[in-house]
Write a protein that binds this DNA or RNA. Sequence first.
DNA 1: CCAATTTGCCTCGCGTGGCGAGGTCCGTCA
DNA 2: TGACGGACCTCGCCACGCGAGGCAAATTGG
Lengths: 108, 108
Amino acid sequence: MDRELLKGSTPLLLLSLLCEGPMYGYQIIETVRHRTGGTYTLKEGALYPALHKLEATEFISSYWETQENGRERRYYAIQPAGLAFLTAKKKEWNQFVDMVQAFVGPKA
Amino acid sequence: MDRELLKGSTPLLLLSLLCEGPMYGYQIIETVRHRTGGTYTLKEGALYPALHKLEATEFISSYWETQENGRERRYYAIQPAGLAFLTAKKKEWNQFVDMVQAFVGPKA
DNA sequence: CCAATTTGCCTCGCGTGGCGAGGTCCGTCA
DNA sequence: TGACGGACCTCGCCACGCGAGGCAAATTGG
């Protein structure tokens, strides 16, 4: 998968995922990897900065949770502002896809 | 339109357009502007470097053509290698869209 | 029991690509 | 003559993803 195509889609992905409930970083990576059948692996160098940025803008929040074995995980949860932002982003995404589709022709 | 989303889609757009026949820079910009109803304006700072890069890799070729009034235009035409590249890019594009769609949910 | 792997977090430098602003030349039209 | 628009281009900035690296603790396996 061409990395250039991915640019800008990360926040959309993350917010969409977090809509389903809080998740921690590693879990996000694994989830994406599994759901895409391995074709797409979110890289840590892309994930964590993106997560931190979304938190800085209050679109998501984070909290540490200790597991039974004593280890800690940092969970991220979507915030109201993030939900609104997601809605806007989705609209933008659809516009974008329609736009490109109009030039390259429909999928089939 | 979020600029980050656009990244990487430019070669796809250009090759798709040039499939319909040779075009010159300014014309490409205007065509895109019109076809999208003005929602998307290809910027010169994105277009020309992209065009030159595609030419450097032999995906397109260019030639100058003099108009009746004496002014010159630089036309770009797709090459066989470009056509092959376009096919691959399209496939990649569809994969990408499907991937994101799988997370944000279908358009409707 | 120790080593290697996995889980889990993170940062930093690099390359890339779009953008805004700038620049140039020339034809046309008021 | 001067302003506008067509038509080409470049350059510095910023944002992003990537690869590589670092660290620490739990788990697994020989």
